[in-house]
Design a protein around this nucleic acid. Sequence first.
DNA 1: AAGTCGGGGCA
DNA 2: TGCCCAGACTT
Length: 349
Amino acid sequence: MTFGAELQGWYLQHKRDLPWRETRDAYKIWLSEIILQQTRVEQGLPYYLRFVERFETVVDFANAEEDDILHLWQGLGYYSRGRNMHKAARIVRDEYNGIFPVDYKTLLKLPGIGEYTAAAISSFANNEAQAVLDGNVFRVLSRYYGIDTAINSTEGKKTFTAIAQENLDQDHPALYNQAIMDFGAIHCKPKQPLCITCMFNTSCYAVLQGEVDRLPVKLKGKASKERYFNYFIVKDEAQILMSKRGEGDVWQNLYEFPLIESDRTLTIPEILIDEQFVRYFGDKAEIKLLQKQTKHILSHQNIYATFFEVRLKGGLNQKKSNWDYVFLKDLDKLAKHKLIFTFLERSNF
DNA sequence: AAGTCGGGGCA
DNA sequence: TGCCCAGACTT
Protein backbone atom coordinates (compact mmCIF):
# COMPACT_ATOMS: atom_id res chain seq x y z
CA MET A 1 0.00 0.00 0.00
CA THR A 2 1.10 3.54 -0.66
CA PHE A 3 1.78 6.08 2.07
CA GLY A 4 -1.46 7.90 1.24
CA ALA A 5 -3.54 4.72 1.13
CA GLU A 6 -2.24 3.67 4.56
CA LEU A 7 -3.13 7.07 5.98
CA GLN A 8 -6.62 6.99 4.54
CA GLY A 9 -7.17 3.50 5.89
CA TRP A 10 -6.12 4.67 9.35
CA TYR A 11 -8.35 7.73 9.03
CA LEU A 12 -11.51 5.78 8.22
CA GLN A 13 -11.08 3.89 11.49
CA HIS A 14 -9.87 6.65 13.81
CA LYS A 15 -11.13 9.99 12.53
CA ARG A 16 -12.65 12.54 14.88
CA ASP A 17 -16.22 13.65 14.34
CA LEU A 18 -15.97 17.39 13.83
CA PRO A 19 -18.84 19.63 12.71
CA TRP A 20 -16.94 21.33 9.87
CA ARG A 21 -16.43 17.92 8.31
CA GLU A 22 -20.18 17.61 7.78
CA THR A 23 -20.29 20.45 5.26
CA ARG A 24 -18.82 21.45 1.93
CA ASP A 25 -19.90 25.07 2.38
CA ALA A 26 -16.69 27.00 1.73
CA TYR A 27 -17.81 29.76 4.11
CA LYS A 28 -18.12 27.37 7.05
CA ILE A 29 -14.92 25.58 6.16
CA TRP A 30 -13.19 28.98 6.03
CA LEU A 31 -14.58 29.82 9.48
CA SER A 32 -13.23 26.60 10.93
CA GLU A 33 -9.82 26.91 9.28
CA ILE A 34 -9.18 30.47 10.44
CA ILE A 35 -10.33 29.64 13.96
CA LEU A 36 -8.08 26.59 14.07
CA GLN A 37 -4.90 28.42 13.00
CA GLN A 38 -2.40 27.83 15.83
CA THR A 39 -5.32 26.68 17.94
CA ARG A 40 -6.22 23.25 19.25
CA VAL A 41 -9.49 21.73 18.09
CA GLU A 42 -10.94 21.59 21.63
CA GLN A 43 -10.21 25.28 22.14
CA GLY A 44 -11.62 26.42 18.78
CA LEU A 45 -14.73 24.23 18.64
CA PRO A 46 -17.04 26.36 20.86
CA TYR A 47 -16.04 29.47 18.91
CA TYR A 48 -16.87 27.76 15.61
CA LEU A 49 -20.30 26.78 16.90
CA ARG A 50 -21.01 30.34 18.06
CA PHE A 51 -19.92 31.87 14.75
CA VAL A 52 -22.00 29.60 12.51
CA GLU A 53 -24.97 30.11 14.82
CA ARG A 54 -24.62 33.88 14.74
CA PHE A 55 -23.70 34.29 11.04
CA GLU A 56 -25.32 31.82 8.69
CA THR A 57 -23.71 33.15 5.52
CA VAL A 58 -20.60 35.10 4.61
CA VAL A 59 -22.84 38.08 3.77
CA ASP A 60 -24.30 38.02 7.29
CA PHE A 61 -20.73 37.95 8.55
CA ALA A 62 -19.71 40.86 6.30
CA ASN A 63 -22.69 42.96 7.40
CA ALA A 64 -21.56 42.84 11.03
CA GLU A 65 -19.25 45.46 12.54
CA GLU A 66 -15.63 44.64 13.30
CA ASP A 67 -16.37 45.18 16.99
CA ASP A 68 -19.03 42.43 16.82
CA ILE A 69 -16.57 40.00 15.28
CA LEU A 70 -13.88 40.81 17.84
CA HIS A 71 -16.43 40.42 20.63
CA LEU A 72 -17.31 36.91 19.44
CA TRP A 73 -13.59 36.24 19.07
CA GLN A 74 -12.87 37.42 22.62
CA GLY A 75 -10.52 35.06 24.46
CA LEU A 76 -9.33 33.10 21.43
CA GLY A 77 -6.17 35.12 20.81
CA TYR A 78 -4.39 36.19 17.62
CA TYR A 79 -7.07 38.79 17.05
CA SER A 80 -5.74 39.79 13.62
CA ARG A 81 -7.51 36.64 12.45
CA GLY A 82 -10.83 38.19 13.39
CA ARG A 83 -9.98 41.54 11.82
CA ASN A 84 -8.79 39.87 8.61
CA MET A 85 -11.89 37.69 8.46
CA HIS A 86 -14.02 40.79 8.57
CA LYS A 87 -12.06 42.32 5.67
CA ALA A 88 -12.19 39.08 3.70
CA ALA A 89 -15.94 38.70 4.20
CA ARG A 90 -16.55 42.20 2.86
CA ILE A 91 -14.40 41.45 -0.20
CA VAL A 92 -16.42 38.30 -0.84
CA ARG A 93 -19.66 40.25 -0.37
CA ASP A 94 -18.64 43.21 -2.55
CA GLU A 95 -16.39 41.69 -5.20
CA TYR A 96 -17.48 38.06 -5.43
CA ASN A 97 -21.21 38.63 -5.24
CA GLY A 98 -21.35 36.96 -1.83
CA ILE A 99 -20.13 33.64 -3.25
CA PHE A 100 -17.18 32.31 -1.26
CA PRO A 101 -14.38 31.31 -3.68
CA VAL A 102 -13.17 27.70 -3.64
CA ASP A 103 -10.12 27.80 -5.89
CA TYR A 104 -6.63 27.95 -4.40
CA LYS A 105 -5.39 30.99 -6.33
CA THR A 106 -8.39 33.18 -5.55
CA LEU A 107 -8.46 32.13 -1.89
CA LEU A 108 -4.80 33.07 -1.49
CA LYS A 109 -5.65 36.70 -2.30
CA LEU A 110 -8.01 37.09 0.65
CA PRO A 111 -6.60 38.60 3.84
CA GLY A 112 -5.85 36.00 6.51
CA ILE A 113 -5.66 33.14 4.01
CA GLY A 114 -2.14 31.81 3.41
CA GLU A 115 -0.90 28.68 1.69
CA TYR A 116 -2.17 26.27 4.33
CA THR A 117 -5.67 27.71 4.55
CA ALA A 118 -6.02 28.07 0.76
CA ALA A 119 -5.05 24.41 0.35
CA ALA A 120 -7.44 23.34 3.09
CA ILE A 121 -10.48 25.21 1.78
CA SER A 122 -9.90 24.39 -1.89
CA SER A 123 -9.42 20.69 -1.19
CA PHE A 124 -12.20 20.27 1.39
CA ALA A 125 -14.81 22.34 -0.44
CA ASN A 126 -13.89 21.51 -4.04
CA ASN A 127 -11.45 18.57 -4.00
CA GLU A 128 -8.73 20.67 -5.59
CA ALA A 129 -5.41 18.83 -5.54
CA GLN A 130 -3.54 21.08 -3.10
CA ALA A 131 -1.63 19.45 -0.24
CA VAL A 132 -2.01 21.03 3.19
CA LEU A 133 1.14 21.72 5.19
CA ASP A 134 0.48 22.48 8.85
CA GLY A 135 2.25 21.53 12.07
CA ASN A 136 0.87 18.00 11.90
CA VAL A 137 2.02 17.41 8.33
CA PHE A 138 5.48 18.83 9.06
CA ARG A 139 5.85 16.35 11.92
CA VAL A 140 4.59 13.28 10.07
CA LEU A 141 6.73 13.90 6.98
CA SER A 142 9.77 14.90 9.00
CA ARG A 143 9.68 11.68 10.99
CA TYR A 144 8.66 9.33 8.21
CA TYR A 145 11.33 10.55 5.79
CA GLY A 146 13.90 11.56 8.41
CA ILE A 147 14.19 15.17 7.26
CA ASP A 148 15.94 17.36 9.82
CA THR A 149 15.82 20.66 7.95
CA ALA A 150 14.24 23.15 10.35
CA ILE A 151 10.53 23.37 9.64
CA ASN A 152 10.49 27.12 10.35
CA SER A 153 13.37 27.91 7.99
CA THR A 154 12.86 29.09 4.42
CA GLU A 155 14.60 26.00 3.08
CA GLY A 156 12.52 23.75 5.30
CA LYS A 157 9.25 25.23 4.12
CA LYS A 158 10.33 24.78 0.52
CA THR A 159 11.47 21.20 1.05
CA PHE A 160 8.39 20.10 2.97
CA THR A 161 6.00 21.85 0.58
CA ALA A 162 7.45 19.80 -2.27
CA ILE A 163 7.29 16.50 -0.37
CA ALA A 164 3.77 17.20 0.85
CA GLN A 165 2.60 17.86 -2.69
CA GLU A 166 4.35 14.71 -4.01
CA ASN A 167 2.59 12.55 -1.42
CA LEU A 168 -0.87 13.99 -2.01
CA ASP A 169 -3.39 11.47 -3.32
CA GLN A 170 -4.44 13.26 -6.50
CA ASP A 171 -7.65 11.24 -6.68
CA HIS A 172 -8.75 11.98 -3.10
CA PRO A 173 -7.23 15.31 -2.04
CA ALA A 174 -9.79 16.14 0.67
CA LEU A 175 -9.68 12.70 2.24
CA TYR A 176 -5.89 12.52 2.13
CA ASN A 177 -5.46 15.98 3.66
CA GLN A 178 -7.85 15.26 6.51
CA ALA A 179 -6.17 11.90 7.05
CA ILE A 180 -2.60 13.14 7.39
CA MET A 181 -3.63 15.97 9.72
CA ASP A 182 -5.70 13.76 12.01
CA PHE A 183 -2.93 11.16 12.00
CA GLY A 184 -0.47 13.83 13.13
CA ALA A 185 -2.82 15.16 15.79
CA ILE A 186 -3.92 11.84 17.29
CA HIS A 187 -1.27 9.25 16.48
CA CYS A 188 2.02 10.84 15.42
CA LYS A 189 1.81 13.31 18.32
CA PRO A 190 4.62 15.71 19.31
CA LYS A 191 5.11 13.92 22.66
CA GLN A 192 4.72 10.21 23.23
CA PRO A 193 3.65 9.26 19.71
CA LEU A 194 2.00 5.85 19.34
CA CYS A 195 4.86 4.19 17.45
CA ILE A 196 4.23 0.74 19.01
CA THR A 197 0.90 0.38 17.23
CA CYS A 198 1.82 2.43 14.15
CA MET A 199 1.40 0.89 10.71
CA PHE A 200 4.56 2.73 9.68
CA ASN A 201 6.80 1.37 12.43
CA THR A 202 8.76 -0.80 10.01
CA SER A 203 9.09 1.93 7.39
CA CYS A 204 9.32 5.20 9.35
CA TYR A 205 12.87 6.60 9.29
CA ALA A 206 12.60 8.15 12.74
CA VAL A 207 11.43 4.90 14.34
CA LEU A 208 14.11 2.82 12.62
CA GLN A 209 16.85 5.28 13.60
CA GLY A 210 15.50 6.02 17.08
CA GLU A 211 15.08 9.69 16.25
CA VAL A 212 11.37 10.16 16.87
CA ASP A 213 11.97 12.55 19.76
CA ARG A 214 14.50 14.60 17.76
CA LEU A 215 12.17 15.25 14.81
CA PRO A 216 10.93 17.61 13.56
CA VAL A 217 13.71 20.16 14.11
CA LYS A 218 12.71 23.74 14.81
CA LEU A 219 14.82 26.89 15.19
CA LYS A 220 14.43 28.69 18.50
CA GLY A 221 12.99 32.20 18.49
CA LYS A 222 13.93 35.25 20.47
CA ALA A 223 13.54 35.35 24.25
CA SER A 224 10.43 36.98 25.72
CA LYS A 225 10.33 40.66 26.68
CA GLU A 226 9.26 41.84 30.12
CA ARG A 227 6.61 44.58 30.22
CA TYR A 228 4.85 46.28 33.13
CA PHE A 229 1.26 47.47 32.66
CA ASN A 230 -0.35 49.76 35.24
CA TYR A 231 -4.10 49.88 34.65
CA PHE A 232 -6.33 52.58 36.09
CA ILE A 233 -10.01 52.12 36.87
CA VAL A 234 -11.70 55.50 36.67
CA LYS A 235 -15.39 55.54 37.58
CA ASP A 236 -17.84 58.38 37.24
CA GLU A 237 -21.26 57.54 38.63
CA ALA A 238 -22.43 54.49 36.64
CA GLN A 239 -19.73 54.88 34.03
CA ILE A 240 -16.15 53.68 33.67
CA LEU A 241 -13.34 55.00 31.52
CA MET A 242 -12.28 52.60 28.75
CA SER A 243 -9.56 52.82 26.13
CA LYS A 244 -9.33 51.20 22.68
CA ARG A 245 -5.89 49.86 21.79
CA GLY A 246 -4.27 51.09 18.59
CA GLU A 247 -1.99 49.65 15.92
CA GLY A 248 1.50 48.26 16.24
CA ASP A 249 1.14 46.29 19.45
CA VAL A 250 -0.72 43.38 20.97
CA TRP A 251 -4.52 43.32 21.26
CA GLN A 252 -5.14 45.81 18.45
CA ASN A 253 -8.67 47.31 18.52
CA LEU A 254 -9.57 45.65 21.82
CA TYR A 255 -10.75 47.60 24.85
CA GLU A 256 -9.02 47.95 28.20
CA PHE A 257 -8.63 50.46 31.02
CA PRO A 258 -6.41 53.52 30.69
CA LEU A 259 -2.85 52.25 30.89
CA ILE A 260 0.59 53.47 31.82
CA GLU A 261 3.42 51.18 30.79
CA SER A 262 6.68 51.21 32.71
CA ASP A 263 9.97 49.34 32.44
CA ARG A 264 9.74 48.04 36.02
CA THR A 265 7.30 47.66 38.90
CA LEU A 266 6.18 51.06 40.19
CA THR A 267 5.14 51.90 43.74
CA ILE A 268 2.08 54.04 44.43
CA PRO A 269 4.15 57.13 45.33
CA GLU A 270 6.10 56.70 42.09
CA ILE A 271 2.90 56.49 40.08
CA LEU A 272 1.46 59.62 41.67
CA ILE A 273 4.37 61.71 40.42
CA ASP A 274 4.69 59.88 37.09
CA GLU A 275 4.69 62.35 34.22
CA GLN A 276 2.03 60.49 32.23
CA PHE A 277 -0.14 59.93 35.28
CA VAL A 278 -0.14 63.64 36.12
CA ARG A 279 -0.88 64.53 32.51
CA TYR A 280 -3.91 62.22 32.49
CA PHE A 281 -5.31 62.60 35.97
CA GLY A 282 -3.70 65.76 37.42
CA ASP A 283 -1.44 66.03 40.47
CA LYS A 284 -4.20 65.75 43.06
CA ALA A 285 -5.72 62.40 42.11
CA GLU A 286 -5.60 59.54 44.62
CA ILE A 287 -5.12 55.87 43.84
CA LYS A 288 -5.82 52.61 45.61
CA LEU A 289 -4.48 49.15 44.76
CA LEU A 290 -7.29 46.91 43.46
CA GLN A 291 -5.31 43.89 42.29
CA LYS A 292 -1.68 43.16 43.01
CA GLN A 293 0.71 42.42 40.20
CA THR A 294 -0.16 39.35 38.15
CA LYS A 295 1.87 37.77 35.36
CA HIS A 296 0.28 37.28 31.96
CA ILE A 297 2.26 35.19 29.49
CA LEU A 298 2.09 35.74 25.74
CA SER A 299 4.12 33.96 23.05
CA HIS A 300 6.93 36.48 23.09
CA GLN A 301 6.34 38.73 26.08
CA ASN A 302 5.64 38.49 29.79
CA ILE A 303 3.28 41.17 30.98
CA TYR A 304 3.13 42.12 34.66
CA ALA A 305 -0.18 43.85 35.24
CA THR A 306 -1.33 45.82 38.27
CA PHE A 307 -4.77 47.38 38.71
CA PHE A 308 -5.49 50.62 40.57
CA GLU A 309 -8.60 52.59 41.28
CA VAL A 310 -8.30 56.32 40.64
CA ARG A 311 -10.20 59.00 42.58
CA LEU A 312 -10.18 62.12 40.47
CA LYS A 313 -10.18 65.57 42.03
CA GLY A 314 -12.19 67.57 39.56
CA GLY A 315 -12.46 65.63 36.33
CA LEU A 316 -9.91 64.34 33.85
CA ASN A 317 -6.86 66.48 33.30
CA GLN A 318 -6.49 65.22 29.74
CA LYS A 319 -8.78 62.93 27.75
CA LYS A 320 -7.16 60.93 25.00
CA SER A 321 -8.99 60.48 21.70
CA ASN A 322 -9.24 56.71 22.21
CA TRP A 323 -10.78 57.07 25.68
CA ASP A 324 -14.50 56.92 26.37
CA TYR A 325 -16.76 56.67 29.38
CA VAL A 326 -18.85 53.50 29.11
CA PHE A 327 -21.85 52.56 31.23
CA LEU A 328 -20.99 49.62 33.48
CA LYS A 329 -24.05 47.76 32.23
CA ASP A 330 -22.64 48.00 28.68
CA LEU A 331 -19.18 46.74 29.60
CA ASP A 332 -20.04 43.19 28.51
CA LYS A 333 -20.64 44.41 24.97
CA LEU A 334 -17.05 45.55 24.46
CA ALA A 335 -14.41 43.21 23.05
CA LYS A 336 -11.73 42.95 25.68
CA HIS A 337 -8.54 40.95 26.00
CA LYS A 338 -7.92 38.24 28.57
CA LEU A 339 -6.16 40.44 31.11
CA ILE A 340 -9.18 42.74 31.29
CA PHE A 341 -12.06 40.29 31.31
CA THR A 342 -10.40 38.09 33.90
CA PHE A 343 -9.99 41.13 36.10
CA LEU A 344 -13.65 42.02 35.58
CA GLU A 345 -14.76 38.48 36.41
CA ARG A 346 -12.83 38.54 39.67
CA SER A 347 -14.07 41.95 40.79
CA ASN A 348 -17.61 43.02 41.60
CA PHE A 349 -18.57 45.20 38.68
C1' DA B 1 15.11 35.77 7.24
C1' DA B 2 13.47 37.10 11.45
C1' DG B 3 10.02 39.13 14.29
C1' DT B 4 5.18 39.73 15.77
C1' DC B 5 0.66 38.35 17.03
C1' DG B 6 -2.83 35.00 22.25
C1' DG B 7 -4.21 31.79 24.98
C1' DG B 8 -4.27 27.19 26.82
C1' DG B 9 -2.74 22.30 27.62
C1' DC B 10 0.75 19.14 28.67
C1' DA B 11 4.95 16.70 30.41
C1' DT C 1 9.46 26.03 32.19
C1' DG C 2 9.44 25.04 27.37
C1' DC C 3 6.99 23.37 23.54
C1' DC C 4 3.06 22.91 20.69
C1' DC C 5 -1.35 23.95 18.58
C1' DA C 6 -5.57 22.72 11.31
C1' DG C 7 -0.33 29.99 10.41
C1' DA C 8 -0.37 34.73 8.41
C1' DC C 9 1.62 38.97 8.01
C1' DT C 10 5.10 42.65 8.56
C1' DT C 11 9.64 44.39 8.66
